[in-house]
Design a protein around this nucleic acid. Structure first.
Length: 316
DNA sequence: AATCCGATCAACCGCGTGGAC
DNA sequence: AGTCCACGCGGTTGATCGGAT
């Protein structure tokens, strides 16, 4: 069986979109919403492939798109996330408000990739890394800013499709987390994420704390309702158990990092964290299991340590 | 002024995944 | 279980622009 083409290519417009086409697409989506991309062009009266319409909307026409002017903060965040996630542009984009995967991918390929490569080169040649926020010789940060929306919300693209997520609220005297996980694994008809680590289950609702808090080191991570919702959302971001360790933290909006006090997390074992290299920390992060809260706490330390240690490199 | 060339980024393309039938 | 469909992802392409010669 051959894969059918997404649409008949004859008679379709290709290449750059005209303002008229943009207007038609925007109006149509305003009226009918996103989705059903294959049929959209016909119904909207566009001579475009459905894929093309989707891409045009997601990467250009959406009202919450922020364009150009990638800030040094965003740049550093992209570098960090890329270090953790690799070329998973949609995941990275999901952590940057108003940025698209395409934009970040392009920005990486034209600016950051070279910059990071140069930095690595310098690090191997001598031990005096340059400041990452310095602009590369050829970097031409375009000043155009179409539709700047400083308060735009995080665009959360999905890495995988997942229509059903089991979200367990632990009852009083709930069994150990690994039991819950086993149960979840058994109930594959109700969840598409059977390997969901128990930290997420316990992190949302635990006896010893309010539903909006998760123990972490000597403090608590607070979750507002929206963040709890995002915790569910993050399950869609990663489909392997290892990734979920990261996703819990990555799901927080790093652009608003001021809302997240890393010092609270680091204080209990700040000495210990200096014992790990970036690779070790990341390895621990990706290999840890979350059978109990101790590991949850540890994992947070690993991750924050990783960020901190990266910060040291970046800041020098 | 004309041409070349590298940088940028919107758009395209192929493929993987999950759901429906 | 197999097939088809819709969607989303990441890699690549190509049009355009601007600086250098």
């Amino acid at each position: 069986m051959g894969r059918s083409s997404c649409c008949a290519k004859e008679g379709l417009n290709r290449g750059a979109w005209t303002t008229q086409e943009d207007k038609i697409l925007t109006e149509y989506i305003k009226l009918h919403g996103e989705g059903k991309w294959r049929n959209l062009p016909k119904r909207a009266g566009l001579r475009r492939c459905g894929k093309s319409c989707r891409l045009r909307w997601l990467n250009y026409l959406r009202p919450d798109i922020k364009r150009g002017n990638i800030s040094p903060d965003e740049e550093e965040l992209i570098i960090r996330l890329h270090k953790l996630l690799g070329n998973r542009w949609s995941l990275i984009a999901g952590r940057l408000p108003g940025r698209t995967d395409n934009e970040i991918k392009n920005y990486w390929n034209t600016n950051l990739g070279k910059k990071v490569k140069d930095l690595d080169q310098q690090n191997t040649n001598n031990s005096s890394p340059t400041k990452l926020s310095a602009q590369p010789k050829n970097a031409k940060i375009k000043q155009k800013q179409i539709n700047p929306k400083p308060n735009s919300y995080v665009v959360r693209t999905k890495a995988t499709k997942c229509s059903k997520v089991l979200f367990i609220n632990s009852p009083p005297n709930s069994p150990p987390m690994h039991d819950l996980q086993s149960k979840a694994e058994a109930e594959t008809t109700t969840t598409t994420k059977p390997s969901m680590p128990s930290m997420l289950v316990d992190g949302v609702a635990s006896d010893s704390m309010s539903n909006n808090e998760m123990e972490c080191g000597n403090g608590f991570l607070s979750f507002c309702d929206e963040e709890k919702e995002l915790s569910a959302d993050l399950l869609e971001d990663f489909n392997i158990a290892d990734d979920i360790c990261l996703s819990e933290l990555l799901n927080s909006d790093f652009s608003n990092a001021c809302n997240f006090d890393y010092n609270d997390l680091l204080s209990p074992c700040s000495d210990q964290t200096q014992m790990f290299s970036d690779d070790e920390i990341l390895k621990n992060w990706t290999q840890c299991n979350f059978a109990d809260e101790t590991n949850v706490s540890k994992s947070l330390h690993y991750f924050t340590s990783f960020l901190e240690s990266s910060e040291e490199v970046l800041g020098e």
